[in-house]
Design a protein around this nucleic acid. Structure first.
Lengths: 228, 228
DNA sequence: ATAAATTTTTAGATTTGTCTAAAAAATATT
DNA sequence: AATATTTTTTAGACAAATCTAAAAATTTAT
């Protein structure tokens, strides 16, 4: 058997976490990522990253040239996306069925994402009725690893009088999510930009009938649907 | 803070597996268990067990005297029961909601049982409506670690003309469970012993209207309700 | 273009959990 | 009771994943 497509190799949790980190760093940088960046993301040391990256390279999961950063191979990307799929499906489950708040799911999903069982993942997906987004608005890859590519911008980029809908958060920290809860800013909310304050870049917003002012810190961490 | 009751210490998966193994061996033997028995159960070597048991003893989770076997401390028992609780709750979830058969749940539950989150476990328990038994008929400890103590015997101990109900399996191997599926022997089935063959100890059974013969291998691995 | 600063890698050590082989203790046998 | 057998522990080694400190390469600055 040469079944090379996916899942023939068993990865450790550490390996999976590295692939996930490399994937997400690559997505934003769009070029090979440095060992330092990976170390920062995983809260480890660059020397540890070098070791692991060599190992992943031996397994053909990453492309690695000394001193020139790391990128994922096709296979490595498949693994990373599969882990992300599991993570986000679990988040949906926790919020929908176990009463978790959106700021409480991350830590638990970080553990659940490493459970290995195709039947479990696909069964969970079906049980949840194939959700397309997680509680933070991030798209969930399907069985084949296909994402919905959303047309989104940050709220702070909108101009006065533009209308849009909040569809996701850039920052998923507990602190930020709790702020949004307190301010009653929810995904799906329709918004309109009433005013932009030039000196501090704060914004006056009409959100579901309510007028509220938000700092740039906030508006630059909210994703809205691209208007066009 | 001296909160010593439970969960202040974080255990590794390996440590949790040792506690679980020691617990289940102790339950049947009712005396301190040998390192050899533990090694056999965990498919490892006795020397590895000695090492781990020392570590668990340092953490006050087991009582260990050289050459004299191992037993759980109150705290160790609490941990073991908590892991068993998680294992069995996940089994219920997998069968009820994700379409797993009762012979498919073990391996996945072995992974899920190590996920650490009080909120997850108790939330799952509530979501499942506080099930009292897992798919194999084993009782599920509640939040406080309390079990239902069932009055059960093995089917093979019943006498001719005795009636009872199948409530659990002693052997949870995939092979045995599949045999039961094929023979359409389910938990909850009402049975009556029609005949016992003296030369091979096989039994003729009336089970839900059907007459079937089962070997001693089978009857000694099925639990029935104790007819007091 | 050379020096300075930064980044990355290497070398060697550490922790966890495991192993094998040998030694020590406990149990069984005669 | 002495010997043989079995069980258990010790000693030393190993793989995975990490770390620190030092060396090497790259990038930035003058």
């Amino acid at each position: 058997m040469f079944t090379f497509g996916l899942m023939e190799i068993e990865l450790s949790q550490a390996e999976e976490n590295y692939l996930k980190a490399i994937y997400s760093l690559f997505v934003v940088a769009n070029k090979a990522v440095s060992t330092n960046k990976i170390a920062e993301k995983l809260e480890t040391k660059a020397s540890s990253v070098t070791d692991m990256v060599k190992k992943l390279s031996d397994k053909n999961l990453v492309n690695y040239v000394k001193y020139q950063g790391v990128s994922l191979t096709t296979e490595g990307k498949e693994f990373a996306i599969h882990v992300i799929r599991k993570h986000r499906l679990w988040e949906v489950f926790l919020v929908r069925h176990l009463g978790f708040k959106w700021d409480e799911v991350h830590e638990v999903a970080e553990q659940l994402e490493h459970v290995k069982s195709r039947k479990l993942t696909d069964g969970l997906d079906a049980f949840l009725d194939f959700p397309r987004y997680d509680p933070h608005g991030d798209p969930i890859p399907d069985k084949e690893g296909n994402f919905i590519k959303r047309n989104i911008t940050v709220l702070s980029a909108l101009k006065i009088n533009e209308e849009s809908k909040i569809v996701g958060v850039k920052d998923s920290s507990s602190a930020f999510l709790k702020y949004l809860d307190n301010a009653e800013i929810k995904l799906g909310a329709e918004i309109k930009v009433l005013h932009k304050e030039s000196f501090d870049n704060s914004m006056m917003l009409l959100i579901e009938g309510q007028k509220i002012s938000i700092s740039q810190q906030i508006s630059s961490n909210l994703y809205v649907k691209q208007n066009d």
